[in-house]
Amino acid sequence: MITLYGIKNCDTVQRARRRLDDEGIAYRFHDFKSEGLSRELAQRWIDALGVDGLVNRKGTTWRKLDAATREGLSATNAAALLAREPSLVKRPVIDRSGSLSAGFAKADEDAIVARLRG
């Protein structure tokens, strides 16, 4: 089963959902805003993808963080921050039976879709 995690109003998440729908790839959508993000799930993602692979340092939420939080971010404290501020997650996170990816760059779309087709 494929689970796509994100925020329904995020342009990248909307594009990913449209592409999966167009390709006929079934998935479950988990909206961070309405369903939240647990610290435990965030930690599993960090363990698999690393902090740099998971945290969106280009977004507004990142820029709004104080300097001490940004500079002190590490694998040991990132899960709590992501659970509190799920908008910091690079979106979407796609979980296909435990195989994870974060982001849906236009240049990578075809490869991501091919991987999801299995």
Rank of each mutant, 00 (worst) to 15 (best):
V55W: 12
R84C: 10
L82D: 07
L54T: 07
G50Y: 03
N56D: 13
G103M: 15
V51F: 01
N9H: 07
R70I: 12
R57W: 08
T12H: 08
D31W: 00
L116S: 11
D11I: 08
L41N: 02
W45K: 00
D66N: 13
A105M: 13
G50M: 07
I112T: 15
I112V: 15
G103T: 03
D47S: 13
E40F: 02
M1A: 12
K90Q: 13
W45N: 04
T60S: 13
C10D: 11
K33L: 12
D22C: 00
M1W: 00
S97Q: 14
R115E: 07
L54S: 10
R84V: 06
P92E: 10
Y5I: 03
V55I: 15
G118P: 01
Y27H: 09
L41G: 01
L100D: 08
R19A: 14
P86Q: 10
A107Q: 02
A107P: 02
S97W: 03
A16F: 07
A114Y: 04
G50N: 09
A80N: 07
F32N: 09
P86E: 06
K58G: 13
L73Q: 04
V113E: 05
T12G: 07
D47A: 14
V13Q: 07
R28D: 13
R17Y: 09
A80Q: 08
A48E: 15
E85L: 06
R96A: 13
I94R: 10
K33V: 15
L81V: 15
L65K: 09
T76F: 02
E35N: 10
I2S: 05
L37G: 03
L81I: 12
L73T: 05
D95G: 09
K90Y: 09
Q14M: 10
I2F: 01
R19F: 02
T3N: 03
W45T: 01
T76R: 08
D11Y: 02
A78E: 12
I112S: 07
I7C: 08
R19Q: 03
A80S: 14
L73E: 05
Q14K: 15
W62G: 06
V55D: 06
R91E: 14
Q14S: 07
D22N: 00
S38L: 09
L41K: 06
A68W: 00
R17K: 11
G98R: 09
S101L: 11
L65S: 01
G53W: 01
S74A: 14
F104L: 13
R44G: 03
L41E: 11
A79N: 03
A114V: 04
R96K: 10
A16K: 10
L41I: 00
N56R: 11
R115Y: 07
A105W: 05
F104D: 13
R96E: 09
